[in-house]
Amino acid sequence: MRVLLSGFAPYGEDHVNPSWEAVRRLDGIQAAENVTLFATRLPVVYGEAIKRLISSIRVIRPEVTIAVGQAGGRMQITPERVAINVSDAPIPDNAGRVLTDKVIISDGPAAYWSTLPVRKIVRAIKDLGIPAGLSNTAGTFVCNQVFYGLMHELSHSGQTKIGGFIHIPYIPEQTLDKLAPCLSLDTITKALKRAAVVSAEALMPEHKFTEIN
């Protein structure tokens, strides 16, 4: 089974984005018996990010897709429950574009639910001793647009595939000049690997995968 994880390029003046740094560590590894992970990097640019993710999906053909993004200020690994059909943020993307009240897909529904086993993911990550919690908002910036676009793509695939979005905190090197919670890159990577295996199990509930260290 193939699991695709996406992470973002650095945003703004940041030199690192922990979402990409974590998922690229997982690229090409066998996370469990019959579960192989793949990674792709997305630009922090409206429209271009979801195009890149969909292109990767069509090449890799994963059964599970987990998009990952940074949520600076959060203290936990947070699987997102819902994506909404609007982009509206006062900050520019990396192309300098600011969107206000912009519908993502004109004929799309108001929202899509994640099809990942979000509560199971939270429990599994907590079992590792890593802080995790369920989130009900992915914001209205590029992360949400990617999440919504991913779920729209999967809803029209006609195949049994699941996907969703997970937000992660800063890593320590990003908090040297600010008071903000963070987790180590090793911890984030470990949590995302576990999330991938638990998500794969959701497609094969009769099978319990043994994670490979």
Rank of each mutant, 00 (worst) to 15 (best):
Met1Val: 08
Val3Arg: 04
Val3Gln: 00
Leu4Ser: 05
Ser6Ile: 00
Gly7Arg: 12
Gly7Cys: 12
Phe8Trp: 14
Tyr11Cys: 10
Tyr11Met: 02
Glu13Ala: 15
Asp14Gln: 15
Asp14Gly: 13
Asp14Glu: 15
Val16His: 13
Ser19Leu: 14
Ser19Cys: 05
Trp20Thr: 11
Trp20Arg: 13
Glu21Met: 11
Ala32Ser: 09
Ala32Asp: 12
Ala32His: 13
Glu33Trp: 09
Glu33Gly: 15
Asn34Arg: 15
Leu37Ala: 09
Ala39Thr: 08
Arg41Pro: 04
Arg41Gly: 00
Val44Pro: 05
Val45Tyr: 01
Val45Leu: 06
Glu48Ala: 15
Lys51Ile: 02
Leu53Asp: 11
Ile54Phe: 07
Ser56Arg: 03
Ile57Ala: 03
Ile57Met: 15
Arg58Asn: 14
Val59Arg: 14
Val59Pro: 07
Arg61Gly: 08
Pro62Val: 03
Val64Gln: 04
Val64Gly: 14
Thr65Asn: 02
Gly69Pro: 01
Gln70Phe: 01
Gln70Val: 12
Gln70Ser: 10
Ala71Thr: 12
Gly73Arg: 01
Thr78Leu: 05
Pro79His: 14
Glu80Phe: 11
Val82Ser: 14
Ala83Tyr: 11
Val86Cys: 08
Ser87Trp: 11
Ala89Arg: 11
Ile91Phe: 09
Asp93Leu: 05
Ala95Met: 01
Ala95Leu: 11
Gly96Tyr: 00
Val98Arg: 01
Leu99Trp: 07
Thr100Met: 02
Asp101Gly: 11
Ile105Trp: 14
Ser106Trp: 13
Asp107Gln: 05
Asp107Cys: 02
Gly108Lys: 06
Gly108Pro: 08
Gly108Gln: 08
Gly108Tyr: 09
Pro109Thr: 09
Ala110Ile: 06
Tyr112Asn: 03
Trp113Arg: 09
Val118Gln: 13
Arg119Trp: 08
Lys120Asp: 15
Ile121Glu: 05
Ile121Pro: 10
Arg123Ile: 05
Arg123Leu: 10
Ala124Trp: 05
Gly129Ser: 05
Pro131Arg: 03
Ala132Lys: 04
Leu134Met: 12
Ser135Lys: 04
Ala138Leu: 04
Gly139Pro: 06
Thr140Pro: 06
Phe141Leu: 02
Val142Tyr: 11
Val142Lys: 10
Cys143Phe: 06
Asn144Met: 07
Leu150Ile: 07
Leu150Arg: 08
Met151Trp: 02
Met151Ile: 02
Met151Pro: 04
Leu154Met: 04
Gly158Phe: 00
Gly158Ala: 00
Gly163Asp: 08
Ile166Cys: 04
His167Ser: 08
His167Gly: 07
Ile168Met: 08
Ile168Gln: 10
Pro169Lys: 01
Pro169Asn: 12
Tyr170Trp: 07
Glu173His: 04
Thr175Lys: 10
Leu176Ser: 11
Asp177Ser: 14
Asp177Asn: 06
Asp177Gly: 02
Lys178Ile: 10
Ala180Ser: 12
Pro181Gly: 10
Asp186Lys: 01
Asp186Leu: 02
Thr189Met: 03
Thr189Pro: 00
Lys190Met: 01
Ala191Asn: 00
Leu192Ala: 03
Leu192Val: 01
Lys193Gln: 06
Ala195Met: 03
Ala195Asp: 04
Val197Ala: 08
Val197Pro: 10
Val198Gly: 07
Ser199Gln: 12
Ser199Tyr: 03
Ala200Asn: 13
Glu201Met: 12
Ala202Glu: 12
Ala202Thr: 14
Ala202Asp: 15
Leu203Gln: 03
Leu203Pro: 01
Met204His: 14
Met204Glu: 15
Glu206His: 15
Lys208Arg: 13
Glu211Gly: 00
Ile212Phe: 03
Asn213Ile: 09
